[in-house]
Every structure is written in structure tokens, then in C-alpha cells.
Amino acid sequence: MQPLLTVDDLKVHFPIKKGLFSRTVGHVYAVDGVSLTLAGGETLGLVGESGCGKTTTGLAILRLLDPTGGRIIYDGNDITGMSRSRLRPLRRQLQIIFQDPYSSLNPRMTVNEIIADPLRVHGLYNGSEGRQWVEYILEKVGLSPEHGRRYPHEFSGGQRQRVGIARALALRPRVIIGDEPVSALDVSIQAQIINLLIDLQTEFDLSYIIIAHDLAVVEHMCDRVAVMYLGKIVESGLYHQVYNNPLHPYTRALLSAIPVPDPGRPRQRTILQGDVPSPIEPPPGCHFHPRCPRARDGCNRRMPELVEHRPGHRVRCWLYRDTNHG
């Protein structure tokens, strides 16, 4: 099946400028060769720690950041270098939900205005029909028409996230990128929003890319998962492949580091030493080798390729050498 969205060798490098004449003295390799696909109706999880490039990847896919290299193909159109005017009709179909709904909602607009605004921008809002549509969308995200006349500060965190979802949904998108959509919410509210996103996906035939650091949330929501480390995907596969049979030492450490709410369970934890290195000067060879418990000779010389270990399950690690001819 033809994927709805294909990202091929995406690169986003930020120049570091210094001095009087803003000389470029280096680059932050935020995203460095990321490839992924998203099929219609599918949910893809993008996980990793801060600085791994997961958010930058999301922003670049939406062209909210301009990629340094690579291609983004949406529904058969290469949108990588597309002009703003040609991009606009496609933008409607690709929407985003942010982590902190408060900072992404205009405090001087009522909720009705917030939801209607993107419709107006796209020339899709006309009078009473528009109002009805906004009311319908509000109801779909679990808010009442009365909520529409209020301002963002009058809402709790969970309700604000519902407003953020409504705004994204109003344009009838096909793809929604959720950047940490539930991580700022209380535990009891988190489940409500996850369930809402699952319901909306079926009803509106949506594809999701869920960017998150919480691996339990991603396991619950996603069909496929890609794990990122310092700008590169180190492992990807169906959720049960990655969670039940993690291959990359980083994925294993990440999964074992999560505190499990089960005091009766004996734990075997791999505690990684040190912090995530800076993406300005990533370590040579495999970027993970300085923290890797299984690093050996050669890991510090060449970056392994992302290779298919089993059908659909890819890993970027020299341990899986038999399949790594790169």
C-alpha cells in the first residue's frame, strides 16, 4: 500500500553563529538522516530523550521548519521545497497538537474564535454553517457550546488540550502530529485525552504521529514505533516488536529505566552512565557508544546503518552485524 506520508533522509541542521559578523562556527545536527513512513489510519510513535530531535522532526514534516536535506512526500506530492502558496491547501491536511495547550492558545480569543480562525485562514468559514461546524467539533472533543464563549484561562489543563485538539480537527486533517500531547496533564486526565484521540482517529479516519518521551503512553497508542537518539533513528518496528523484543542497547536501557508501578516485581535495570551528549559534536561512530554497556572495538569508528533484522523491525547497531553490511 502506498504510504500517506514518506520522509526520506530528512536532515535539519541549525547553524551556530558567533561574533560580529555572525560567522557560522558549527552546526547542531538536530535531525540527521531520518526516514519514516506513515500509512493511512496508522499511528506512529516517535520516542527518545530530550535533544534527540523528535520534535524537530515533527516540525520539519509540517514545514514549520525548513529541512536542510531530504524529502517529505505527502499523498504523492513532494512538499520539501514547495512554495508557501502551493503548500497552503495541503497544510490544512497536516495539523499539530502541542504539549502545553496554554502557550499555544491565544489568550485574547474565545474558544469559538480560536477554532474558527484556521477555518477563516483557509477560506472555509462562512456564517451560520461555520458556527455549526465549530459547535459540532466542540461536541466531538467533549466540550459544550457554552465552553465556546469562554477564554483559554478559564479552562483546566485537560480542557485546554481538548481545545487544542478541536482546533487541529476543525480543518478535517488527515494527519495529526501530537508533540507530547498528554505529558503536561495529570494522570487521571491523561487517560481521558488518550481515549479521546483513539476515538477521533476511528471517527475521522486520522493518521497520527505521536511524539513522546513516555514509552508507556506510546505503547498504548501506536501501531509502530521509532526510537531516536541524537538525530537518528536507532530502532523501529511494530510496537510489540520494539517493546517485547528490543534490539538496540539504547532501547533496552530506556525500557528498563522506566519505574514500573508494581512493587512486587523484581527489577533488572540497566543504568546508563552520563548524559545524552550534545548534538553539536556528536561522538564519532555510533553516537551511543560512549554510554553503551555493550560497546566494543569499532563502534567508535563507523556509524552503523539502520538495517532490517526481522521483517519490519529495523535496528542501527553493530551487534546485529550478520545483517549489517553497510
Binding site: 494522570v187 487521571s188 491523561q190 487517560a191 488518550i194 513516555d214 514509552l215 508507556a216 503512553v217 505503547e219 498504548h220 510496537y239 510489540h240 517493546y243 517485547n244 525500557l255 522506566i258 514500573v260 508501578p261 508494581d262
Partner: peptide
Amino acid sequence: GLLESMPRLGSRRP
């Protein structure tokens, strides 16, 4: 309710 509403690693059943 809190314990039940938490997504847990490994609890998803195909």
C-alpha cells in the same frame, strides 16, 4: 482509578 487509568508498559494486548 489512578492505578487503572495509567498506561503501563507491557499491558497492551493485541
